[in-house]
Design a protein around this nucleic acid. Structure first.
Lengths: 201, 201
DNA sequence: AAATTGTAGCGAATAAAAGGCGAACTGAGA
DNA sequence: TCTCAGTTCGCCTTTTATTCGCTACAATTT
């Protein structure tokens, strides 16, 4: 982002030319189109725009400029178009993009932070090593919610929360692990899980 | 963290100008727009607004102002502080929040859309019914990547992609399901999975 | 009431990008 | 190999941002 006036003119010329002619302009054509007398100036503009990620090009290749995102009033940094369900029986292009999804949908107006999950104690919950859980900072939880909890100020752990009279049961979602039972006053809830984010390499 | 009346006027001018022209104003243009006679005053406003987190800018860079959240009473829409790893042995408050995570980290500058996962064909991959996969629109994939693929223009499915000579193997991540083998020309790749998002009720 | 702090404003001096030039060099394709 | 579009270089001008010292006012704190 952060384009200057002149750079926008260059960009507009590039996309206009490519649109009309079907191929990108040579540096000489760009110079002519912008009223410049030196190809070095054109080159500098192209380099600057490339550094800002506004276009692609190949080294020493003729007419290899490819404007990348010029006319995209919608920035898909946060909100993603929801194209439908997988296995819907149609190519995804065919599906109208009426809906969308975003992090703010999960977060709302709550105070949320992320934690990287370490270990496999939530494997049965399909939360695995390296995933990020999105946690609302709160000190209370309801029956069955996944919480970040401390027992006696020791390790913070990710467990399902159940209240059984005066004691609290913290249930790992891994059948090989045993639940933790503790009196409510020794259990400190730090937050509850609203969502999960995974990043593939 | 409240904005003053004058600061709001500055902010409104900035986003209006950027919206109309496609690039951000210079300090001189801002001064003219607000009836100021000194660029120092403009600079002070910009600095104050930057300190309040209302805009981004680059040092000494022309027209690099980027209004960040103008109409968003919500706290964190995109970027979340990463508080550390779960089971780190400390209360999460104690951990410094040097890092952060966001959707844009996964997306980058690619064209990405979301698909709601239906069914359990990716269960072994810990992607389950109701999850959202974040898909980059692309027509090629590399060995082992999770792709959205169509065979003979039929149902779009989520599978791992393997190339075995002239044929393609589409491997479901569910041990109960059989892989699909098909000649490469009958397989159309619609995108590859960059990440996954889950929302708890 | 006095001192402090933060916002708002001015003009001038300084420094750094951005924009521009011509000339010489380089590499991909014919 | 020859050509020409693209690249690199040194140098210049213009535009733009930054910093400094100063005044004034309003809201808080002491």
């Amino acid at each position: 982002m952060a384009i200057t006036r002149r750079q926008k003119e260059v960009l507009d010329f590039l996309s206009g030319f490519t649109q009309r002619k079907g191929y990108s302009p040579s540096y000489e054509e760009i110079a002519a189109g912008l009223g410049l007398n030196s190809l070095a100036t054109v080159h500098k503009h192209i380099t600057n725009l490339h550094n800002k990620g506004m276009l692609q090009r190949s080294h020493n290749r003729s007419r290899s400029i490819d404007v990348v995102s010029q006319r995209a009033p919608k920035k898909f940094t946060d909100r993603l178009p929801l194209m439908g369900r997988i296995a819907a029986g149609k190519p995804v292009e065919a599906i109208e993009t009426a809906e969308s999804i975003s992090l703010s949908e999960i977060i709302g107006s709550r105070e949320v932070f992320a934690l990287e999950v370490h270990g496999d104690s939530m494997r049965d919950e399909h939360i695995v090593n390296g995933d990020y859980v999105l946690v609302e900072r709160t000190s209370s939880a309801r029956e069955g919610e996944i919480v970040v909890a401390l027992v006696d100020g020791a390790d913070a752990t990710l467990k399902r929360f159940y209240k059984e009279g005066a004691v609290v049961r913290l249930q790992p979602s891994n059948s090989e692990m045993a639940p933790i039972y503790a009196p409510a006053e020794r259990v400190m809830i730090q937050g509850k899980v609203l969502g999960m984010l995974r990043k593939y390499a």
